[in-house]
């Protein structure tokens, strides 16, 4: 669901200088995006002692990680620091399974547009909890307008492009075009009331439906 970039060396190297390291590397999302070569280079350049390395896929799966930790328990015990190359979910899983170990991530995680379903798609959805697509001809302004505008384009929309980044289409231009095709431009006259952020942003703790 998430893709990563390697952190700048100067952020990591001082933290691990002359420590014994154990490395976790997650290859689960390789087919989506994983800077495998950068990771390899980063590891090769380390001057510290590496007592072991586990490459696995789906570091976000607690059960898998448990088995790996068991198998590598000796090396992990020897290590002073665990370095993790994975998205933020993987790092949190490793940290929670090895609470008394210092776990450092070498990656920054970013979220790609349109990545809720299978893999990266043309469309994006912020899962905002109150779908506006019925107003907008099926194109989402929340996820795709940098200002999340609900009542039409701002003054910066020009030649179909967004003022924030001219490489990006103005989603409101697309909405207007779509509604014109549908003959439903009247929809745009409706005054859309402020969004209810509480629907989307506070939730109950995760429901475990499959104990």
């Amino acid at each position: 669901m998430l893709v990563v970039q390697i952190k700048p060396e100067e952020e990591i190297l001082p933290k691990i200088s002359s420590k014994r390291l154990f490395i976790f590397e997650c290859l689960g999302c390789q087919e989506i995006y994983f800077p495998a070569e950068d990771v390899e280079k980063f590891i090769d350049n380390l001057k510290e002692e590496i007592v072991g390395k586990a490459s696995l896929d789906y570091l976000c799966n607690r059960e898998f990680v448990k088995e790996y930790i068991e198998r590598y328990s000796k090396q992990i015990k020897k290590a002073q620091i665990l370095l993790v190359f994975s998205c933020g979910v993987g790092v949190q899983i490793v940290s929670s399974l090895l609470e008394d170990k210092i776990v450092y991530t070498c990656c920054d995680t970013l979220y790609l547009n349109g990545f809720q379903g299978l893999t990266v798609q043309e469309f994006n959805c912020d899962q905002c909890g109150e779908c506006y697509l019925n107003y907008t001809g099926g194109i989402c302004p929340i996820a795709q307008c940098p200002k999340h505008l609900l009542n039409g384009p701002c003054g910066g929309s020009q030649n179909g492009k967004c003022e924030v980044d001219p490489d990006i289409p103005c989603v409101w231009q697309q909405i207007v075009d779509r509604l014109a095709k549908l003959g439903r431009l009247d929809k745009l006259e409706e005054l859309v009331t402020p969004r209810n952020w509480s629907v989307s942003l506070i939730s109950e703790p995760p429901v475990k439906r499959f104990p």
Binding site: G152, P153, C154, G160, W172, Q173, L188, E189, L191
Partner: peptide, 30 residues
Amino acid sequence: AANPFADPFEFRVVRLAKKVAAGADFIQTQ
């Protein structure tokens, strides 16, 4: 505010109408 020069041009008046409907007393343009 209103910007008569931004796109989509046809929608600019609609947006003005929405501002009026929302309660704007005066408009200053781009």
